[in-house]
Design a binder for these strands. Structure first.
Length: 404
RNA sequence: GGGGAGGUUCCCGAGUGGUCAAAGGGAACAGACUGUAAAUCUGUCGGCUCAGCCUUCGAAGGUUCGAAUCCUUCCCUCCCCA
């Protein structure tokens, strides 16, 4: 039987962002089976910041949703109490339940930018405390009896710690077992993950087989460097484009991406066709900025809309290329029309910067009013309503004088 | 239980009695340059009533004219042995 068009399209689309299938054959079988798939999407809600890297996985799931498959959005509220040791060279702090709930809400708010949450046939929300909080010890021991110690410590991360003579706490070793068991409980057919989760999800396959279930297919996705061109995107390095960022920030952050990364970003983070990207790849040296803006617009279109994309591009061009003071800047209301320069700026920053820091800004020539540089922080200046103050590259505000 | 190493400014990491607000790197910020919030270059990067003063080097005491550096106690982290 020749592959259907839909399947072909799906595979092509998936190949673009897939690192590895475990296995491709099994995946194709799943698609061919015409079965409504259950896609496990397990979430660690330690910190609720989704970036466009996470969203790569979400978009793949969204594609499956659009074909009628169902995402099981699994909040790992129980396992979060343990803390996933993945990628950590030290033990993760444990966060309280109230925090977990709050984070889960925020997480969902962001995931909604990609996944459909509106149809219970396409998405259901579960929590693994449902089964683990009342799980009994003898059952648990049976689970443990199925896995050997050497299998668990074969994990690269554990190996690293052993090599460095660092501690491995027992609950950390249990974590993969619990995550794996989730797959069995949810009868997962498929899960789409970062490659760092591979070991845990492989245990899912293991347990499913042990319990007579068909093992889930695992798809790991490609990872690109962060916007600083270094490590992968992360909150702590602040080198990510977050789903929670405003469209303006998304645009700016895209512009921060090193030129060399533009093509990779187009491949992974947009739906621009591969053919078109290969043309861009050849063109790009001539005018990297043009294509970086293009990338930024595409990304904003994906999470917001076309109008925002255009608006932010224009804002960026006007503000940074043409150096036109933007229209939509905050207004600061003041009473007096005569100020010591530094007091005015301090008022704007509202104690978020120290006096020394603000003085430095003056010294470095970062402060201007209506385009005229104010070099001395202790100058007395006369201001009028409508005056525009600029501090550094990205801070502007307008003055409004109110009568007391 | 025994032995050893260590806790330095946002991060990494030098510094072992004065020349230390503390090297170097990273991050960040500013300026220049640029078609980019890329790259590159330069500068800044504890606080203040700022050419001076004040507070920092896990905590508290002590020695000294003078301590991040020496001593004492305490707290914490890591490693080894049993």
């Amino acid at each position: 039987m020749p592959p259907s068009n839909a399947k072909k399209e799906l595979l092509e689309s998936f190949l673009r962002t897939t690192d590895e299938f475990f296995s491709l054959n099994e995946f194709e079988e799943l698609i061919d089976s015409k079965k409504k798939l259950r896609i496990k999407y397990g979430v660690d809600v330690t910190s609720p910041y989704l970036h466009i890297g996470h969203a790569v996985n979400l978009w793949m799931m969204r594609e499956l949703q659009d074909l009628g498959h169902k995402v099981i959005f699994l909040i790992g509220d129980f396992t979060t109490q343990i803390g996933d040791p993945t990628g950590r060279n030290n033990t993760r702090p444990i966060i309280p339940q109230s925090e977990i709930d709050k984070n889960a809400d925020e997480f969902i708010r962001q995931a909604k930018m990609v996944l459909r949450f509106d149809d219970p046939d396409l998405l259901e929300i579960r929590r693994n405390s449902e089964w683990f909080s009342k799980y009994n010890l003898s059952e648990f021991l049976k689970l443990l009896a199925m896995v050997t110690h050497s299998r668990l410590i074969s994990r690269d991360m554990f190996q690293r710690r052993i090599k460095n003579q660092e501690d491995i706490y027992l609950h950390e070793m249990i974590y993969p077992i619990l995550q794996g068991y989730d797959s069995y409980v949810l009868e997962s057919d498929l899960t789409i993950i970062g490659s760092d989760q591979l070991f845990n999800e492989m245990l899912g396959r293991f347990y499913q087989q042990k319990f007579g279930q068909k093992p889930q297919v695992i798809i790991t996705t490609k990872i690109t460097q962060g916007i600083d061109g270094k490590a992968k995107q992360s909150k702590s390095l602040d080198n990510y484009i977050g789903l929670g960022h405003s469209s303006r920030d998304k645009f700016g952050r895209c512009m921060k991406v090193p030129d060399e990364l533009i093509v990779d970003y187009l491949k992974i983070y947009t739906k621009i066709s591969i053919e078109e990207i290969s043309i861009i790849d050849k063109e790009i040296v001539k005018d990297p900025m043009k294509w970086k803006k293009f990338l930024a617009e595409e990304i904003i279109k994906r999470y917001h809309d076309e109008a925002s994309a255009t608006r932010e591009r224009e804002w960026f061009e006007n503000t940074f290329s043409k150096k036109i003071t933007p229209e939509d800047i905050p207004t600061m209301e003041v009473v007096d029309s005569q100020w010591i320069a530094i007091d005015l700026i301090n008022k704007y920053f509202d104690n978020s910067k120290s006096n020394s820091e603000v003085r430095r800004l003056f010294k470095q020539g970062a402060v201007s009013i209506n385009g005229k540089n104010i070099p001395l922080f202790d100058d007395t200046i006369d201001i009028a309503a409508g005056d525009v103050v600029k501090v550094g590259k990205r801070n502007w505000f307008k003055l409004n004088i109110i009568s007391s």
